[in-house]
């Protein structure tokens, strides 16, 4: 069985033999997550403050969000049935998620979080210097002759543009306070 026919489920049989009604397991999880978010947010609308009808003028605060959540929940029920139909017309919805997340992506995401968390503490300039040093190094850049000028010049240029030309005041951080 070749890859396409395997993916399309040809030869595996189906609930009724029609790809239109066959479900795709990863998408059941997607639907479950979407429905869970909807349910949680829908529940949250019961905690909105109540308003007298005369003030609300027929537009109670939870009505519109509940409508939107209802629409999302209804559409999400179509998702598990999509995969096999799409595959028939040559569209692979699993293309992006076919490979598991590589560790480098998770480490990069963690680094981004750490760098943003460090910004108020360190101040804008040291934080940007860290960004320009840490990310290229993490992604395997070792050409020091390019890297060092990048680390030195780029953050300074960006901060100069924003703080001097656009008059933005950045967090000074520990170092800035010490200097003061």
């Amino acid at each position: 069985m070749n890859e396409t026919s395997r993916k399309a489920g040809i030869g595996n049989g189906g609930a009724d033999g029609s790809p239109n009604f066959r479900v795709h397991r990863p998408d059941i999880w997607v639907t479950f997550i979407v429905l869970s978010i909807c349910a949680a947010l829908y529940l949250r609308t019961f905690w909105f403050d109540s308003v007298p009808d005369s003030l609300a003028q027929n537009v109670q605060p939870p009505t519109f969000p509940r409508l939107v959540l209802g629409v999302i929940a209804a559409i999400s029920l179509l998702i598990p049935f999509e995969y096999h139909r799409k595959l028939k017309s040559g569209i692979d919805l699993d293309e992006e998620r076919a490979e598991p997340l590589k560790p480098i992506v998770l480490i990069t995401a963690g680094l981004l979080l750490a760098l943003v968390a460090a910004m108020p503490l360190l101040g804008a300039l040291p934080a940007l210097v860290l960004v320009t040093a840490a990310l290229p190094l993490l992604w395997g850049e070792r050409r020091w002759k390019l890297l060092i000028p990048f680390i030195v010049i780029f953050p300074l240029a960006v901060l100069f543009l924003f703080s001097e030309v656009l008059q933005v005041t950045f967090p000074r951080g520990l170092f800035g306070d010490l200097l003061r």
Binding site: V131, E141, L159
Partner: peptide, 13 residues
């Protein structure tokens, strides 16, 4: 390796 860190700098700022 230089382009995307630069984009991140611009994004933060």
């Amino acid at each position: 390796t230089f382009l995307w860190p630069a984009v991140f700098c611009f994004s933060i700022v």
